[in-house]
Design a protein around this nucleic acid. Sequence first.
DNA 1: ACCTTGCGAGAAAGCGGTTTCTCGCGGCAC
DNA 2: GTGCCGCGAGAAACCGCTTTCTCGCAAGGT
Lengths: 351, 351
Amino acid sequence: MTSARVGPVSTPRRRRPSVGDVARVAGVSVGTVSNVLNKPELVSPETRDRVEGAIKELSFVRNGRARQLRQGSSTTVGALLLDIRNPFFTDVARGIEDRLAVDDLTLMLGSSDDDPRRESKFLRLFEEHGVLGLLVVPTTHETKHLAAIQERGVAVVLLDAPPGAAGLSSVWLDDVAGGALAAGHLLEQGHERIVFLNGPHSIRQCQDRREGVDRAVLAVGQDPARVVEEITLPRLDAAAGEAALAAWVAAHGGAAPAAVFCVNDLVAIGVQRALRRAGGFALLSGCAVVGYDDIDIAAELAVPLTSVRQPRHEMGHEAAELLLRQAAGEAEQHTVFQPELVVRASSVPGG
Amino acid sequence: MTSARVGPVSTPRRRRPSVGDVARVAGVSVGTVSNVLNKPELVSPETRDRVEGAIKELSFVRNGRARQLRQGSSTTVGALLLDIRNPFFTDVARGIEDRLAVDDLTLMLGSSDDDPRRESKFLRLFEEHGVLGLLVVPTTHETKHLAAIQERGVAVVLLDAPPGAAGLSSVWLDDVAGGALAAGHLLEQGHERIVFLNGPHSIRQCQDRREGVDRAVLAVGQDPARVVEEITLPRLDAAAGEAALAAWVAAHGGAAPAAVFCVNDLVAIGVQRALRRAGGFALLSGCAVVGYDDIDIAAELAVPLTSVRQPRHEMGHEAAELLLRQAAGEAEQHTVFQPELVVRASSVPGG
DNA sequence: ACCTTGCGAGAAAGCGGTTTCTCGCGGCAC
DNA sequence: GTGCCGCGAGAAACCGCTTTCTCGCAAGGT
């Protein structure tokens, strides 16, 4: 470990001043202090000045929990994403945050890591916390538990997921179309076999992308079972992609597959890494790779990555928008975005 | 826009059941319900069963705000980072979260975008929210306002920043050493001029890295003023790096600088992009580029990037650790990590 | 039979704000 | 001079939960 520690001195800890303290210093009642804070126009200028002076003097900061408890309101929304380290989700998160900032709301983030236990832990935490609403990338198809939360008065929007239980708004992207786009592109390039590094089908996106792949294969009159070799990854990051492809290469005497479709760009980056390690640039450039998400760095890689683009920021923004509407009592609403194929060197011969 | 909307149906909204409701259904007092929730061993099994039945029946979820208000405790900590989209910060955030999860605490994240106004807005929000503690990447050298917050009873730890006002713990990395490492490496490669794409010196890290660069230059008996050409970027992302380097190339008749040191990897990625666009792979491979942070994808770029590595996850973890200690009344403490140079193709001739 | 224990449950007082209701007081019309 | 109105400030209830304190009651000891 390359670190060092130093440090003496102790830290004081005092009770925070309350409206009562402010009232005492200003020589008014607590109700008046509250009025200064919330409805200054109801208070005479002199009194207001005295109170504001006292607030400064004590450096009073009001207790938002008590405030919200009384008002029954809330200013935070919770978002439960699959993995905050995945650039796809941070871009989505930023989209959410940007929309919330307009209304002076703040965001609590959690990563479920696609683990239902972590998901339910965070959901409970958020709900107890009294969030205004919840944006959830669900870990399973089953969304009844989310509908139940909404029944209890917390607006819930499904994020990166199709419409689920009745009453829940949703924002997602047509992953069947996305999968078809990717596979169609590879087939067009003349590939007859496609290795598909996918996540478990319990993840909706993974299942849908597979369905899209199958449709594309059927569309050219081929048999998916013969064309597609699907490998299920335990996790959807670069390390998992690298391991899976290294195993494939090892199992095929050092040869690379002709075409690989990866369930996301991180996995694709891992695949490229595995190819480079196994056979250098030659192997790498002989293998067509397509990713998914089109994260910012996809274009900057050793071999720029062909990818299926999702409007990440916009998806987050729209999800927050729907959440606020739903919280305002509007009806549920479903927005579906369309994917777009971005072709780069990783999938075309001259790359 | 590639999206569509649909949706009818209305959303109900009911008052959440309270302990009082549970008590009524179970035929006990609210105090007993509370005891079932918090000290089940004090309640007789039959009563406990009745209460738990009522909780299930009403699907009661306790109101954490009221709970924390009464207890005076809190289970969330706030972290104010510069930009959540920068992988450096998400890795730090993940380190924080991993440490907090051990104690069942949750994280609220905010991005200040290096804007003091956004910073103070978030600080107020967090403080009103009653967070247990605050991890802050400060936007200025001035940390008195943070010390003032700690005076009011919220533990504060400076993150990615050197010790500031008395009483505040801190976790940072020796950026002077980091800057020296990068510049020393470029000088060793025989470069006599270094273009340094830096952020404004009002950002401590930027100032320190510059100082490190100067020291390295002085160490080989050269004059920093002659060797280093520093360009100040308005933002520290890929777009800013690309724009700055494109301008440099344009101003030098299409020639690339021999050596570029970038204040972070995103900027370096932008630089590589600019070089590729201006002169293709030839120009790119003729220019030595060094980045900072060593984010995960640095190794996967078209030209793998030499970078100064920071232990991101560990820094976040340690910051959370210090925060919890400080919140527990322990004395302030300062941890400083050491950077490490990771040499890749982007800075060495044979790359 | 009587007094002490001790256990389990209820009543009530907060936590720190907001909000409603009441009330005193000065100004104004009659 | 009396009555009314309205403004500004205070008193008190309340949000939902925890926690302390009290008390009834059954068991156990003598």
